[in-house]
Each structure stands twice: as structure tokens, then as C-alpha cells.
Design a protein around this nucleic acid. Sequence first.
DNA 1: GCAAGTACACTGGTCAGACCAGTAGCCTGA
DNA 2: TCAGGCTACTGGTCTGACCAGTGTACTTGC
Lengths: 246, 246
Amino acid sequence: MKFEPVAPVRAYERIVEQIEEAVVSGRLKPGERLPGERELMTQFGVGRSTVREALRVLQAAELIRSRPGDPRGPEVLAASPAALHRSMHRLARADHVGLAELLQFRMVLDGSAHLLAAQLRTDDDLSALDTALVAMRAGAKEGFEQFSHADVAFHETIARASRNPLLVVSAEVVRGVVLELIEDKLSHARDRSALMQSWLGHHAEVLEAVRAADGELAARLARRALYDNYAEYVPEEQRALLTPLL
Amino acid sequence: MKFEPVAPVRAYERIVEQIEEAVVSGRLKPGERLPGERELMTQFGVGRSTVREALRVLQAAELIRSRPGDPRGPEVLAASPAALHRSMHRLARADHVGLAELLQFRMVLDGSAHLLAAQLRTDDDLSALDTALVAMRAGAKEGFEQFSHADVAFHETIARASRNPLLVVSAEVVRGVVLELIEDKLSHARDRSALMQSWLGHHAEVLEAVRAADGELAARLARRALYDNYAEYVPEEQRALLTPLL
DNA sequence: GCAAGTACACTGGTCAGACCAGTAGCCTGA
DNA sequence: TCAGGCTACTGGTCTGACCAGTGTACTTGC
């Protein structure tokens, strides 16, 4: 005979559960409104502070948003990767997850995205990629920031062409965290224009592989590009984590 | 001239920022204690409800834990993937993500985990995998639930051997969500023992590839095993999403 | 009739004070 | 020495209050 350990369940947690269930199950759709706090406290039969703590938790999870003065009540938000981004960022800043692991993960995700994109891409995807690459060439002349924006757009186009929202979101999150970790080093990079030229070359190659529907090649090129551009910021003894992916 | 939009900053958010900064920067180490709520309200110069809402947010982010009655105050927790797990779970349950996408993502993650595990595995990893496989064989005789447990353990051992905590967590989360989506169908499966035998065969093959340090083979086998076992639950017209990974 | 402006009811954010169940650690008595 | 009880204090919850700010409906001016 085995018993489960029990933990006291706080009132606010029960409220969070109920509302979260209603949101993720789709019974409450994005844009819809929750009753106001005073109404919720009668519906749940608790005090306002309890209701508020529940709403705080839901708000921190990016499920709802409440603004003072709005008589329509708290708004149910569309699912967004913001919470995922935050928790991954926190985890990354904590120990156990360094740049090496992040970069490795990004090589995995980006590589797979390229693989899938190359095999599932439509003509629309290809032309979107063409324009993205053109924008990168233009951005390279204007400045590093514009170039970065265009670069991000290119990667997002690839991810979208993979037809997998989880891949899109994860890749986006990991890319963001990686960039945050090295943006200071990147901004001190000596020869930015050489950097941008190198990236442009990589991207053009990748695009050709995608156009040729050669998934393996596109994936390998993408991973290689990440390695070439970022490995120098990874401590030397950890680069062994990355090389198996090349 | 461009101005940034401003959002009013709530008092509790400032408190969250300060404490979070102290935690992630390492100024507050896991196991250490925060002052009690009444003490915090004097330090921050706010009311107790404000302090509590801040603590709720931090608690939802798995940064602290507070228990009533403990005179030492709220405890700072070690960084854990629990929050990441929750947010990814929520995102995956949200719409736009069906079984096909989940399975595709899982094939990507598991495949990469196997690839890395095969190339980075130590002898300890190999013996852990051996015992996991033995446990699966034993579990197959006892019942489906024991078998499932052992199967999960095998996958987790692989993931850990990949040396990437992000991969471990993501794979675990996606596996959990996939299982949630099809557990009812799985429990109605006609011939469970044949199912278990098939899985056992797949795992043994994979293990040999890992032992031989053949990453490509291990990855391909792992993806193929997932496809063979789960593709039947994916609507036919969406299986095209999965085949590029085989 | 309609647009601009205003008043108001109500929202969420915050505070103060209170009560309760439950805990950690001390303190007592054997 | 140690089991058992005591107590001061914890976090969880409730009530009631005030405020700045908002959306709506109404009024005003044209």
C-alpha cells in the first residue's frame, strides 16, 4: 500500500487552475474578457487579495493581461512564446546552461528547420527567402542593426517554411537568448563588414540548397554557418560539444 | 525624433525585478532565505499585499518557495527546468499545434539527442543504457505501465548522455505532451505485447548504434522508431510532415 | 443630426489592519 | 538526555478603504 505525499493546496492555486484550464482548453478565447476582480471574488467565494494573487500568476504566465480602469475586465491573451522565452532565459543565465549548450541546441533546431524547409518549401517560401536575402544585402550597406534585423527575418522565414510552430518558437527563443549572451562581444567585433559578408555568403549558399530541395545540405550548411560565426565565443574545451553536429 | 511607448510600472514589478536580479546574479544563492513578508514590506516601503503579489510571481517562476509557519522566511530555489516545462507545455497545448507537429518536433529532438549521445557517450552512459534496457525487458513481462516507465527512463538516459540540459528538458516536455494526446488511444491498442516487443527491438538496435558511436544511424533509427509507433495516430494527410525526417 | 466635450461609475493598484492555522525552536519536566 | 508542550512568529486569507485612471453614456455646442 502506497500513499502519495500531499501538499496543501492554496486557494489562489485552485483559481489559477480553473482559469488556466478554461484558457488552454479554448473555452476562453484570446480577446475575451474575464469578469472583474470584484465579480471573480464572489464567483470563487474568496477575498479580493486571493483573486489578485491568482491573476498575478496568470499574468506572469502571459495568459491574461489586466489594465486598470478597463470596465471590460482582464483580457485573455493569445498563446505567446514570451513566457517560454523568459523561463529559458532565466535557466540560461543560471548555471548548467552555458553558451555552448545554447549554441548546440540552436544548431540542432536551426539545422532541422532548414532540413524541413528545404523539403516542404513552397514557391511562396522561396520568394520570401529571396526578398529576405535582398533585404540583408541592403541592410549590410546601411549598418549593423539593419543587417541584424534582416538576418533575423531570414531565419524566421526559414523556420516558418518548416511548417512547425514549435520549431519556429523554440528557434526564435534560443536565438534571442544566444544573442543576448554575446551581444556585447559582438558589438565589439573588430571587422563587422567582413562578418556581414561572411554571413551573406552563408545565407546565399543555404538558400540555394533550399531551392534545390537538398535538405541534408541545407541543414549542414546552416549548422556550419552557426559554428563558424559563433564558436569563437565558446570556451575552447567545450567546442567538442558542437563538432559532432558538423 | 522617436519616442518609446511607456507602460506604467507597477510596484510589485519593481520588487520582482530586484529580487530576481539578486537571484539570477547569484547574490542570493539557492537555500538562502529571503526576509519575511513583514520585513520585506518595510524594506521596500510598500504594503504587504504588494509584497505578496511579487512573491507570487517569483514563486510561479520557480525562483522561490514560501511555506507558512517557517520563521526563516521564503527559500531561494535552485534553477530548475520546471518553469520551462510549464510554459512549453502550455504553448504545446494551445491551438495550432497538433499531433503531427508535436511528433515531428519530437523526432527532431530525439533524433538529435541520439546523434549527440552516440558521439559523446561515456562508459557510464552505456552501462546506464544497458540497465535501462534490461528494466524494459523486465517491465514488458509485468505490465504495460511498468514497461512505459522503463521506456521513459531509457529515453531520459539517452537525453542525458547528449549532455545538453535544454535538449533533455525539451524532449521530456514534448514526450509528455505527445503521450497525453494519445494515451487514450494507446490504452485501447489491441495487441500490447506485440507493441512492446516492437519497441524493445527498436531500442536494442538504437543502443547498438550508440555503442558503436554511429550517431547518424542512431538518430535515424530513433526517428524511424517514433514514426513506426506513432504515425498511425497522425491524420494521413499530415504524415508528409514526418517523412522528410526518415 | 452630429461631433466634441464632459461627468460618472467602475476598474485595477495599493495600503492598513485583522484573524487563523500551522511551524520551528525553545523550554520545561521527567 | 530527550520527549512533549509552549510560544512567538510565519504565510494565507479576508475586509474595507482610497486613489488614479479608463470607457461609456450623456450632455453640450454647432
